[in-house]
Design a protein around this nucleic acid. Structure first.
Lengths: 253, 253
DNA sequence: ACCTGTGAAGATTTTCACAGCA
DNA sequence: TGCTGTGAAAATCTTCACAGGT
């Protein structure tokens, strides 16, 4: 079941020296997963800052615009070897380039979307896709009525041709927007075609080889998490006095 | 000079005492945030198990279907005071009810979707919405061509009426599917209307009072995270000893 | 024999707080 | 003075490993 690559409980928790020499790539720093997710957010916020004409930002301002605290932001940026200037802040354009480089946005990633229903359509039309280094290169569906039509300039192919078309067009990222029942099979085909990164919108837990990175976006899960918090809010107070909603500390603006 | 347009973000000065109130269940048990997200997944998988006719599952089987390891699953379930039977496993229907109760799915949560573009349409048509205890009760848009039309049985209202309509229909969860530029303003209106849970699809970091729970779904961020992993695979470990691929297993979230 | 529930260890992430530089 | 970069502490989350019930 669980694969156990390493067994030895490792060594002394003296983190100061990275004992295991990683490959000799320039800027080889370990970027925590949690940090990666936030870097993308910082990048967008930096874009907004740049649009205002500011050439520098402080960690404080950037953090508050990104909704995190400034210590976290500084630590995140320190992982990517960034340097701002003490007493001044970060140079916006330089920092943007740095984050883009770390996120691999200096290369383009050809994207295929499988499933051209409501959601697939919306995705295909999403400008942030092609606009931001993720050119949409292929669309697939099983529905004969959809195969052959053109969406956002791309002709919809039959899912049977996933392997062939993805290989041909160098697809590196696959987006699954099919019904749940079809998702695993589609996923298998993408993986067979060499796709190693998948964004899954189908309400299914995909089983993939470990080298494949899957990100899941699940509306039902998000709604249920919100539901939990709604219930919690009511539960904490309602038990005692039966009132619907606890007094609000913040009124309408 | 400062970037933040609005009031306090979900984190800031006032946040010195940042101890997020832990999630509580009537029994005074604490459910970690990370666990809450997985409970929703377990619930779906349990549904699939139930469909096969099994009346019990082991932590091992359930975990593998949910893509997590069994120790984690058992610990998660222990937080909700669940009990399976040693030597046997968990009773499927009982466990489902328990999770539903903890997630607050025993009550209905009226949902409003703001923004009836491509994505909003897709969301409005999403069956898992109304089907699963989240009745879609209101739709809003600014576009005069959309206001008044009926989508999935719901008449689209103008966003000016968010406050009025949400209050009237008892909306507790708001979904923002507008362009980024409109999102903050829409959010403010939802909050003013008493909505305390928001699912945000707009590529913006919303600034909200701290009692409001915001979940963000951000396609660009997801793509960029995948991009990072693509780049890492190709870059760093390329020529390390010939053995297995160094990529570490990364579970969903 | 099998499988849950959980204390404790380990790993990761967040926050604090301050040294040090422009 | 103002703000970054970062050790170190704290908090959170994951995994181990086994006691204990069936």
């Amino acid at each position: 079941m669980t694969v156990h690559p390493k067994v030895s409980p490792a060594s002394d928790p003296t983190k100061s020296d990275h004992v295991v020499p990683r490959a000799r790539v320039p800027e080889d720093r370990v970027v925590p997963e949690a940090t990666v997710a936030r870097l993308a957010v910082y990048l967008r916020v930096l874009g907004e800052v740049a649009a205002t004409g500011s050439e520098t930002v402080s960690s404080e301002d950037l953090a508050s615009a990104a909704g995190v605290n400034s210590a976290k932001l500084r630590k995140d940026l320190s992982y990517i070897g960034s340097n701002g200037t003490r007493g001044v802040g970060y140079e916006v354009s330089r920092l943007m380039r740095q984050i883009e480089r770390v996120l691999g946005l200096t290369q383009r990633h050809a994207v295929a979307v499988v499933g051209v229903g409501n959601l697939g359509h919306a995705l295909a039309g999403y400008s942030g896709f092609s606009g931001r280094g993720f050119p949409l290169c292929a669309l697939f569906d099983v529905d004969p009525d959809l195969v052959g039509i053109r969406v956002n300039g791309i002709v919809v192919e039959h899912t049977d041709r996933i392997g062939e078309v993805c290989a041909q067009r160098g697809v590196t990222i696959g987006v699954i927007a099919t019904p749940g029942a079809a998702a695993q099979s589609v996923c298998d085909q993408l993986v067979a075609a060499g796709v190693r990164s998948i964004l899954n919108f189908a309400p299914v837990v995909l089983q993939v080889p470990e080298q494949v990175e899957v990100r899941k976006v699940d509306l039902a899960v998000e709604m249920q998490i919100l539901s939990f918090h709604v219930a919690r809010r009511h539960g904490e107070f309602a038990a005692r006095n039966g009132s619907a909603v606890p007094a609000r500390a913040v009124g309408p603006r």
